[in-house]
Write a protein that binds this DNA or RNA. Structure first.
Ligand code: NAD
Ligand code: NAD
Lengths: 219, 219
DNA sequence: ACTGCCATGTGAAATGGTTCACAAGAAGTA
DNA sequence: TACTTCTTGTGAACCATTTCACATGGCAGT
């Protein structure tokens, strides 16, 4: 009877790979696979079978020796490990170029991330409608975030204002932030922050080309 | 007299951190800093000073003992290590939600990544103008990419067609691809591929919240 | 029930990345 | 010149992650 809080510290790479397994399992499900071996899964992700098994072993024993893993079952185990077997209410702040693109992206909702509020400070945008959601005034952020019980935010505002907004957002009770602005944000220790940095990936490509770096598994 | 090709294999994390240092150095430059110590740089990135020095030491000795690093000089050293002290011609394929957002993003050009061609297969988009660039028919990809000597591509098409386009793009001589489609693409060993996966970061946040994972340095 | 086969789960070994700790160099002061 | 202070650059130690290798257990066929 394993207790709910896992003991070992799980590495970031393991979690990222769980996301990859999840995506591949969804695909295998569509292709009507019943079971999948660590070998097959590894091949699809360009990893080793041992890596796949070790990753999963941190969370339990989900496979059957001689057979492999049941696709449906493993998929739903990973869903529950990643916490995407529930619905998350997300606010998106900054309905500009990238913000609008994100609102239109249906995959997020399929994985349980529901963008339910939009905020901006541009009068021309406030009140307008994006995919059925009306853009709110950033001034009402605290009230509306608290009222809707939102704990996750996507930040797509200019870097110059990102820190101010983060401070407000944290005050409103948000504990998870996905930031697109190219800036190092300060958050209190209990808030989870991830940065999406596209320049970094372009720069990696540039480095690899200039240095004839042997291409390796990406990310 | 160090030779041009570096001997040791440089880790992905080191390259990613160079990107971070670069961004911070640009900021320090604007703030008129003359020099910066590994300690200060580390503080801003939430790293250890030893980490900063070790990262840089793979590429040479850029600092002055007792003083630190000259901001301008270090910045330009990193530019040359990352290969962003030159201009890269980039083609963007798929001028949809995310594609349009990326075309409008001015920071890429500032770092040497110039989007010079747009491709789509939607007749309503072909011929239209985005930020001064006319959208080309995907059918002309091979010709136009070769003609313009483009070696880097940003892929923002639906996952269902991404592999076909990658195959074409590779035939046209492209050797670096930044992919936004949520799919594992196959490329020949001499082609560099990076994936931008936003779901992964949301899932990481979700995992962290559910597991009360202590927040750590992001990415 | 027995046998052969296959793939998991996991300690232990190997590899890779980060941090420590210190010798040594540079600048400033007198 | 001698002395102090500061911070780099780097082997060595430490820690984390990946890979190896194999005992274990389940399934299928006879
Ligand atoms: N566009 C891209 O492809 C891209 C790529 C990578 C990173 N980013 C980053 O994402 C962020 C947004 O980029 P963008 O291109 O969408 O910019 P944008 O200017 O199109 O959008 C920013 C939005 O934020 C809003 N805003 C500004 N100040 C605000 C405030 N105080 N409160 C609420 N809303 C406010 C603006 O009204 C605008 O709608 C930037 O930090 C940018 O660096 C963008
Ligand atoms: N929108 C987002 O926020 C977001 C976030 C993460 C990932 N993605 C991924 O990025 C990709 C694009 O997403 P989007 O939301 O911009 O979709 P979109 O449908 O708005 O854009 C896709 C574009 O690709 C074009 N296209 C389709 N087939 C083509 C072909 N054969 N050749 C050339 N062009 C073709 C379409 O005409 C369209 O303009 C998808 O793979 C999506 O999963 C999008």
């Amino acid at each position: 009877m394993p207790s709910s809080g896992s003991r070992k510290r799980i590495s970031e790479s393991t979690i990222h790979r769980l996301s990859l397994y999840y995506r591949t399992l969804s695909l295998l499900e569509k292709e009507n696979y019943e079971t999948v071996s660590s070998k097959e899964l590894a091949k699809r992700e360009k990893l080793t079978p041992a890596q796949v098994r070790k990753d999963l072993s941190f969370f339990g024993s989900f496979g059957t020796r001689g057979l492999g893993y049941n696709v449906n079952e493993l998929k739903s185990k990973i869903e529950s490990i990643l916490g995407i077997n529930r619905d998350w209410k997300v606010a998106l702040i900054g309905v500009g170029n990238i913000g609008s693109a994100l609102v239109s992206y249906k995959e997020f909702a399929k994985q349980g991330f529901h963008i339910v509020k939009l905020f901006d400070n541009d009068q021309r945008k406030i009140g307008s409608n994006h995919k059925g959601i009306t853009v709110s005034d950033i001034k009402d952020l605290d009230m509306e975030v608290k009222e809707a019980n939102i704990t996750m935010v996507i930040l797509a505002v200019p870097a110059t204002v990102a820190q101010y907004i983060v401070d407000d957002v944290v005050k409103a009770g948000v504990t998870a932030i996905l930031n697109f602005a190219p800036i190092n944000l300060r958050v209190p220790p209990f808030v989870h922050l991830r940065n999406e940095n596209m320049s970094m990936e372009l720069e990696y490509l540039s480095f690899a080309m200039v240095n004839n770096h042997a291409p390796k598994k990406s990310k």
